[in-house]
Design a protein around this nucleic acid. Sequence first.
DNA 1: CATCAGGGCCCTG
DNA 2: CAGGGCCCTGAT
Length: 327
Amino acid sequence: MDALVSLDYKFVRNIEPTAPFNFDATFHKPDHFPSGDNAWQPGCRWQSMLWQDQPLGLLFEDRGSVNSPLVQLSIFAQNELAASFLEGVVEEVNYRYNLQMDLSEFNHLFSGDPQLGSVIHKWLGMRPMHYGSLYEYLNVAIVLQNATVRRSVNMLQALFEHYGRRLAFDDKALYCYWQPQAIYATSEQDLRNLKVGYRAKSIKRVSDAFAQNEMNEFSLREKSVDEQRRALLNLYGVGPASVGYLLFDVFHRWDYLSYISPWEQTIYSRLFFNTQIDDPVATATLIEYFTQHYRGYRMLAVHYFWEDLFWKRKNEKIEWLEELIRL
DNA sequence: CATCAGGGCCCTG
DNA sequence: CAGGGCCCTGAT
């Protein structure tokens, strides 16, 4: 299955994000684990995308500034694409990367906050984003479960190699996701052979739900948070931790925060209550704290702190954090 | 060499 | 609603 697909057609579109806009903090998230479907360097992000059965290569380039943002998007494809198709890609890209997000209220409310204020100032215009579809994110969420980062990386890579394709564009070769039908057509044992362990059952059942149109990301986007939450929890293999990530990253629910996993608990306790690693405060206390301080944008506020921390980690060693991130 | 926990979730009692 | 079991791996 590991065929190299050459994307020889190129189409260029300009996108004007809302200002202020921080290109690198939006297009690169140092806390995301490395994944074979994208690459980044300052001012550039390469990304594969499977859109309406078409394997695409995307290249985003920073052509503006914080206050006068401009992103040049190059779309690479196997063949000629209609203007309407390209418009659809641009619209979806605007959605996934939150390029038209209005941050003015968030900035206004919290730029004077003793802790969040300086972080907002430092990363002014940063957007949360997830580059993939709901189905793609679910695969990531599942391989994250109860595994070390290295193992999660290996599992996703094995899935790419077995069910995905490699796309060649702009001198890059990046893996592209598969359709859920590819796994609908396979067996749980085939998945287990890729050493995903008991997650095989979740991957299979989630893929089956999408292949049989029991899940529709686009209609789900129109529903209420509660309906979205219920629909996601209804999927086998999705629990409180995954649903939190999904509602924030895929459904853009900036205030949804109802579960904090143990390792996040340790980090937040250290950041907000200055506790020792082995003595974190209760998650209920943390949630109460976020509710008091960042009501309306609780998870977005957490995202700003989180990204700030992982950008720091990228540039300097943070010893207490290294202990918590077991590769 | 054996043991264990890891960026959860399901199922049972 | 607490707790055991689950696949596999790398660390100890």
